[in-house]
Nucleic acid binder design. Structure first.
Lengths: 232, 232
DNA sequence: GGCCTGTACTTTGGATCCAATAACAGCTAT
DNA sequence: ATAGCTGTTATTGGATCCAAAGTACAGGCC
């Protein structure tokens, strides 16, 4: 189950989000099994997982359809992440961050400063930011030491547009993206400061606001708000 | 899948939470299949669902074990619910509650007032409170109109101690429970007032605090805090 | 005597087979 | 001509079979 089956779930998730199946489209077991080169059994297992994740939903009486998400859904998923990561940040601030977490967060901020210090973005910087941003968020969530909170966030992140590293969408306009990343970096610093000082409420609100960064902040830089959903 | 298989998931969930399998215990496919009188296939599918719900977790290299939850986990699950229901309440207050939702909430409060107005609890009141409380919470969550938020809350509620109606634990001491329910009723009224007035931040904080009602409020009434986890 | 290795058994995961059911189409009757 | 019924087909869900991987036990070697 571990190796091969997990790969089926992953590949099916990728197959769907890459547009192999359109939102609202009915998805059948046999066709997917043929496409992935496996039997129907692991596909059925994977359908179950993806149903729980929210990517699939049961059809009228039989089978599954690919779930379709509205702009509103995207916004809500980001708000859910903000609420949960805010909760994690508050708990972390109140209970104090251990040396390991502090070190990780400091490392992320240092890497962010190095990345953005030169005043512009170059090829590969976006990937580098993505990993450091991922590390930063995971450090906070794992720092709470609660699998329940972690799981809740992970489940929400299964929605393809909800996770923390779906910020950058236009890698062609690096100058515009630079401003967003710089703001995100500043927010990271503020969150870290609040965490260090044990300012729970402030850490929570900062983390919550930080979730919006990939969503509506484009308006601040004169972008078209409709193009700033962060989806895909 | 719909009818029979859903029953397998439900029955297995019940089998686990009724103590048929101890937390931390390894759970095998064949034994469960025999106990439920079905083949291994639906059991495997059910394992998948319950893994996503968080009731099972993968064993070291093979199979599943029943997840065990600490007191800390219970607290975290309640805080997660508070954060998410708080988010729902804020959105509802900001966007305004429609006549349907308002009516439902008013109905719940009226029923609560009738239930608690006589000053004491009698047999059956606890079940009545449970349904009205469930209706109240669901009205707020569904009132947001967002399946994403709804799903996130539902997924958290799959943990047996996390849902909103795991308040009352000691049905033998009805006088003590009365005070808790009365406080809960007052909180419902405050939440409703904030929702009506469009006071988003206040509605959120009230809803969030309200989540704790079954957890630590026992201390206020001189109960043993350890007995007030709300589990089961 | 303890540790390592090999073999056998247990259990899971994948594939295939069979039954049940829902969708679809064609036919008939009003 | 249309609506309802019936038969056929396609697709899902359950059971069983087979292979692979893990674990435990035992025997041998150091």
């Amino acid at each position: 189950m571990s190796s091969d089956d997990k790969s089926v779930v992953t590949r099916l998730r990728k197959l769907i989000s890459d547009g192999g199946y359109q939102p609202g489209e009915r998805i059948g077991e046999v066709r997917v099994a043929e496409q992935l080169g496996v039997s129907r059994t692991p596909v059925r297992l994977a359908f179950r997982t993806l149903e729980q994740e929210g990517l699939l939903q049961r059809a009228n009486k039989r089978g599954f359809v690919v779930r379709e998400f509205s702009q509103e859904d995207v916004l809500c998923a980001v708000e859910v992440r903000g609420a949960l990561e805010g909760l994690a940040a508050r708990r972390l601030a109140e209970r104090g961050l251990g040396p390991g977490v502090r070190e990780q967060l400091e490392g992320c901020i240092a890497r962010g400063a190095a990345l953005l210090g030169k005043g512009y973005l170059e090829e590969g910087d976006i990937a580098r930011w993505s990993t450091l941003n991922e590390t930063f968020h995971r450090a906070i969530v794992e720092g709470t030491g609660s699998r329940v909170i972690d799981d809740a966030i992970q489940r929400n992140n299964h929605l393809p547009f909800a996770s923390a590293d779906s910020i950058v969408i236009d890698s062609a306009a690096l100058d515009r993206e630079y401003q967003k990343l710089y703001l995100a970096h500043q927010q990271h610093q503020l969150v870290f400061q609040a965490l260090q000082r044990g300012e729970g409420a402030r850490a929570e609100m900062l983390m919550r606001e930080h979730a919006y960064i990939g969503l509506r902040y484009g308006e601040l830089f004169g972008l078209d708000p409709d193009a700033e959903t962060g989806a895909e």
